[in-house]
Every structure is written in C-alpha cells, then in structure tokens.
Design a protein around this nucleic acid. Structure first.
Lengths: 163, 163, 163, 163
DNA sequence: TTTT
DNA sequence: TTTT
C-alpha cells in the first residue's frame, strides 16, 4: 500500500539495563524494556488505579545503538519514536504466537534522553541524536542514525521472542 | 510512573470490515485489522522490496465506535491515534502468549477518515471525531469519545487473540 | 475539509514561569514560553552549532490549566501535545502580522511533567492529566481536560500577540 | 538544551500548487499552503461551526522536494511531519513581525500522499519517502531525505513571509 | 527567557 | 523490570 504511516511515540523508564547483541555480519542491536503507566480514578469505586505497560523496544540504527549503550541505564527516562513490528512464530505445540516490538531503525527513529544528569559524559550532546539537524541552518544529514542490521542476521533472533 | 506517554499513530487501510462486539454491560467495542506498508530498495540487490504490517486495533470510545461502525469498510483508509496495550495469556501447552493491540479509548484517541467519498453521509462531518473541538472558538468537549467498555467484559474476548 | 489532523508534540523547558489570565466569563488560560533546541555539526566548518526555538503555548483546557499553574515553573521540562493556531492582526502601520501558537484545548491535548522531583505534592499524580485514563480497565473519561475559554473572551487578548 | 523534541504532524489539503525556489547555491526548497480544519457544535447556540487553519510548510529535504514537485497539486491530501520554526523580521514601521513555518528538513521529516490516484506515476511508490526504509529487513538509509538549503540563501526569502 |  |  502506498501512503501509510506506522509510528509509535513513547516516554517512559527503562526497567533494566539495555541489552546488546552483535550479528555475525557485524551489525548490532540493542533491546530495551520500557515502562509506561497511567493512572485514573475508577468511575465506580472512586479509588486510584494504575496500569503499567511494558514495551519491548528494538534499536537497529547504528547511531541510536551507540547512544543507547553509552547513556541508557535501568531507570533512565527516555522519549523515543519508532515503528510497530509484529513477528510471528510457532511454539512447541505448533501454535501461532506473536510478539510486537517498537523498532527504531532507519528514518524517523528518535531517542531522546530526559534525565537531568546521567553522571556520564560532561554534557549529553548526544541526546536527540535522531531528531536533530534540521535543514534550516546549514543542516547536515550525514551523521545521523542509519539502518544497521540486515535481514538475514535479524532472523536468527526469532527464538528469543517472548520478552 | 508519572510522566509517561504511550502513543501510536497509524495511517493505513482496513483489511476487512470492522467487527463489533457488545458487552454484557451494554458497552461496545469494534476491532479493525489495519495494514501499513513500506517500500525500500534493497541495499545489496537493489531490488524493490515491500513489507506489510498488520495491526490489530481495538476501539472502545463510544463516539469512535459509532464512527467506525458507520463509515469504515474493508479498504477504507484511516488516520488513527491510540495506545499500545499488550495482553498475555496461556496457550493450551501452558506457554505464555502475548498480543499487542492499538487501543482507542479515553482521551487522546482519534479516528480520521481519509477516503475521498464514502458514499455515506452527505458530508463526512464525523471524521476527526476525536481530534476536533479545540478550545479556540467556543469549543465543546462534551460530545467526544469516552471510555466505554469495562475490564471484566473485556476478558472473555481473550480467546480470539491471534488476529 | 473533512479528514484533517493538526498536531504538535514538544518536549522542552520553560523559559519563565507560566502566566495566567482570567476571562470576564470566568474561564482561565495559561501561556508558556517553551524552548526546544537542536545541535548539529556544521557540514563545512565541522563546528558544533545550536539553534533554540521558542514556542508560545496557550493552555485552555480547564484540567491542564490547573496542572500548569500548580506544577510548572521556569526551567520545568515538559512533554506537551496541542494544535497549531495562527492569529492575524494589523499593526499600527496597518500591516498584517501573524502569530502562531500551540494551543492545548479540547481533546487530544496533553501535558506531561518530566522533571524528577517537583518539590510540590507528595506524588505527582497529576502529570499526564491529558493522556491518561484509557478504556482498557474501567477507565473514566469524566474528569479529563475540557475546553474552557470561549471565543469572545479570547479576542480581547489579541493585543498581546508578539511574544 | 539537550533532550528536546519539536514535531508537527499535519493531515490536510493543499490550497494551491507547490511553489519551488532555487538557491544560488544550487539547493531547492518548496513551500506548501496546507489547510486543516475542524468542526464542532457550538456549546450555546448548538449550531455547527468550522474553523480552517492554514499552515505554511517549507520543504528543504532533497528527497521530499522531489516528491512534492512531482506529485503534489492544489487539492492534494497529504500527511506530513516536520518541525516548527519561527522567523522574526522588522516591518517597514520597524515593528517586530513573526512567521511560523512547518519545516521538513533533515531527519524525521515525512511526506505521505493520501490521494487515491494522482494520475501521475503508475503507482505512487514515492509516497512515504521520509517514513520508509526501516532497519527490519535490509533497510537502506542512503537514499533518504537530506538537508539541502543553507542558511544564507534562506534569508533572502524573508520578504515573502506573510503567507 | 530555558536547558546542557 | 521502571517510575511516583
């Protein structure tokens, strides 16, 4: 289909440190476990309720992989933008199973750190890596996030699906 | 967690007619099967490739349920905005399975029809139902989308998960 | 036109404290001055460059007005979602002038505080006010953000346009 | 500031054909005049009201410039994603004037055609140019949108601001 | 005018 | 598993 958009925007905290994997082809990917939550007052009981959602995030862009490895930690708060992707596989009983991930790869992927002070680098001029240059002032599209992993390599990760 | 955002924006076409279900409690929900796709040139082979992603969309907001039932059909193109929600259940083999849906319910859900002429109403002044009023000119927040279904009712739908 | 979307998403810091105004009709609005900035390496010179953008944000939703007054201060970091609106007026020389604002009013407006500790309330269960309930668990759409100000009242603010 | 996001998402129709300009430096930019509108029922009078908003859109990305020139026409419906940028200048009376544009340049800019049949190319495999590859299947970031124009060149366009 |  |  032409003319489609597939976009996810999340702001939340990491439930654990990022996990890196290297492909045989040299590429790298990082997975995050990101929590978002919402609160509301129950309509009938009037009590506070809360629901936490856990998102599996897969970072494929070379630039964003670097940012994630360097600056993200368990507890980090981030803004991110990616795409939905659902993978399907058969469990031992031959049943179809599905896992949906938020993939940051290629264009229109962003990762912005929202923590005050990460204790890491002097200044975190890395953040917003995927959302930066802009053409309005001599921008430079050359150093941004790039699709890194390739399809063949990706496939052999199918078995670690249930996050 | 305070301070989180969970947002999905999709533009795509319906793979089949919307499906409605009524809860014992009187509420209603509609599910959509929405396709988005992307094309790119393969880096190595140079050939055109295409990948289609299917999204399970669940509409809970009363207003948006009405819009969906009335104006959406197989093939309709829509813009929609909702939240990610993953449900977990056990298959017969006792394995954990997951299904992620895009839920349109409560605030910040939108459904905007993008087809030229739906053949339905004289003018499609329904579209953008969830994205409209605005306060900038005597807006009216009273007739908008509202959370409809309740959790217990939702549970008995678990068996139709693999979309 | 049917079928349109007008959405702005910003993450940035307040340049000064929020400013409140009360309408004769009793409604209230709050304006924010929000900075976003981006950095990039100049393509030719190779030097770091930075560009800061200032956004005039107008909050009309009753609920979000309350949140802004209570918890936002100069320096606060926020995620917000609103709509673009351009107002036009004549300056003394009879020239057309324009001012574009990001308006948070009606549906699909959000304000999420991103600061670690605001020093205010025990817990900041206010944040995400406009992005919360969700229908997936007995949600309640009744207490959310609502369009507050009315058009007539708004008009007499036209003179403070150049922000 | 690190950690900021400046994003605009619009779906609307072009009020006139795209306008192209070439810089002395060889770069190109295209401007669009895009309408979004919303309808609501007036709270007091109960009558239908409508408000149309016109957005000035500036496309700087090389790839998106090409797409815009080739496939967009007056009346075209598009989804686009860009950034807010406000420019300031003095009118003849020495008054400060401002113009805010939605800029599509650099990363995270998208332009997706939503018309059924543009009468142009066999299939519109151009659309979604800025939102496509994705790393999940042998993606290719090399042919995407790039920042094109430079700042000096941009400046001599200041006089056509009031759109 | 913010932030790093 | 995060966060408040």
């Amino acid at each position: 289909m032409s003319g489609s958009v597939n976009k996810v925007i999340l702001v939340g905290n990491l439930g654990r440190d990022p996990e890196s994997r290297t492909f045989q082809t040299g590429g790298k990917m990082v997975t995050l476990s990101l929590a978002t939550s919402e609160r509301w007052k129950d309509r009938t009981s009037g009590e506070q309720r809360e629901r936490t959602e856990w998102h599996r995030v897969v970072i494929m862009s070379e630039g964003l992989v670097t940012v994630a490895e360097r600056y993200l930690r368990k507890g980090s708060k981030v803004y991110l933008e990616g795409q939905l992707r659902t993978r399907k596989w058969q469990d031992q009983a031959g049943q179809d199973c599905y896992a949906t991930e938020v993939v940051l790869g290629g264009f229109n992927a962003s990762l912005v750190l929202l923590d005050k002070a990460q204790g890491g680098p002097g200044r975190n001029d890395y953040s917003g890596y995927g959302d930066t240059p802009g053409a309005g002032g001599g921008g430079d599209a050359g150093s941004g996030p790039e699709a890194a992993a390739d399809a063949g390599a990706r496939d052999d990760l199918d078995d670690d699906v249930p996050f």
